[in-house]
Design a protein around this nucleic acid. Structure first.
Lengths: 204, 204
DNA sequence: GCATTATTGCAGCGATCGTTGCGTTCGGGT
DNA sequence: ACCCGAACGCAACGATCGCTGCAATAATGC
């Protein structure tokens, strides 16, 4: 059981935790993984149910069916826990498409991103992670920036021209995240696709 | 004394509180205003000094030289207080420029906006307000959206063509806020000015 | 100037938070 | 199958939070 998603957030993802079996950590055994999954799920659930102020360490522990001491010892601060949850939630959940053309890739990827941020779960986690310093905020976007960069690089290796990562960030990532955070309506996939037109020269 | 800024955040602003004398509130007398100013300033100060987790009602009251009960009674929740502080901080602090051309207006306004968000104070307030629901987040941007709309409307009344408010939001506001929130380096005024090129057709 | 009333200060309360020391249980290697 | 050590549960502590009586103060209208 590697963080089975029990219905609260039906969200497609490829791998659940990035560094699960890579580094030979002291003891990534069955129970530790189980506890971590329960705690992560508890954070997500409490974040959707009530306001962020009620998200406290004992509450998380109670929801997860775990003793509060465990949560304190493993994660230390609520901020670190939120950063960990955010990193786990926003890594490996989107796959970079390969439609053959840069435009197609970007359109599909941006639409997927916008759809992903439709989930109130995601928005709540981003908000909470942001409140705990820059690290938590970066945890929500670094993976996405890398994916964007990889698509642009692939186009260049094809021999085509591609804009800067910086400009792509400003044109695609920034609007999607801005809408999700600052407006009640997160933005539709069609709108997200149209963002690509502002980045790439028109098709022909 | 209407929230005299005592050095902690040297920030130019036009009016301090928008709805100060409009509605005949029960008793906006001298002491109430003084207390509110002290509390607002205390929030800003504590937000820059320590992490957001230590921002608690008694701490704010102590810093403001006010009894905690006062803060509880006037604002109720920490979230409401943060929303109020954010609304007060981000209203009337930027003036819409009038350079004669839409491009010039947008360039200067966006650069001003980016400079404004360089202040760690502002970023901390945005982060904190965001964590308390959508209302607090909107409080940071509604005024800016209106300013942007007014500039575009003015260009149209001049007879010129102007892009949609939606597109201007995506091209200008979103990148600036995104950088301020999710990256360690908030973005320079020159970069902000260059954003206008992605929105408007090149000068000639 | 004086009465009225919103607003603040004060003291104290229950509840919860965050931490620590120690015993117990479970996972991993031989 | 065994042992070792990491991870967890348990109980208790001090500190702080959030709230609610009641008294005092100061701003407004006459």
């Amino acid at each position: 059981m590697s963080e089975t998603r029990t219905g609260t957030t039906p969200h497609a993802r490829a791998t659940d935790d990035p560094d699960a079996g890579t580094v030979p950590r002291p003891r990534p055994g069955g129970r530790s993984a189980r506890v971590r999954a329960a705690v992560h799920r508890a954070v997500a659930e409490l974040l959707t149910e009530g306001p962020a102020e009620h998200l406290t360490m004992p509450a998380i522990a109670a929801r997860a069916g775990v003793h509060p001491t465990t949560v304190y010892r493993r994660w230390g601060t609520l901020g670190e826990l939120l950063a960990a949850v955010a990193a786990s939630r926003f890594s490996g959940d989107l796959v970079v498409p390969d439609t053959g053309s840069l435009r197609g890739d970007l359109e599909q990827w941006t639409a997927d991103l916008a759809t992903d941020l439709t989930d109130p779960d995601s928005i709540a986690i981003i908000r909470a992670a942001l409140s705990s310093g820059t690290e938590g905020g970066c945890a929500c976007t670094t993976e996405r920036q890398e994916q964007l960069a990889s698509m642009l690089d692939r186009e260049r290796s094809r021999g085509g021209a591609a804009p800067t990562v910086e400009r792509a960030l400003d044109a695609l990532l920034a609007p999607v995240y801005y809408r999700a955070l600052f407006t009640p309506a997160p933005g539709t996939p069609d709108w997200a696709r149209s963002l690509v037109d502002t980045l790439l020269p028109r098709p022909a």
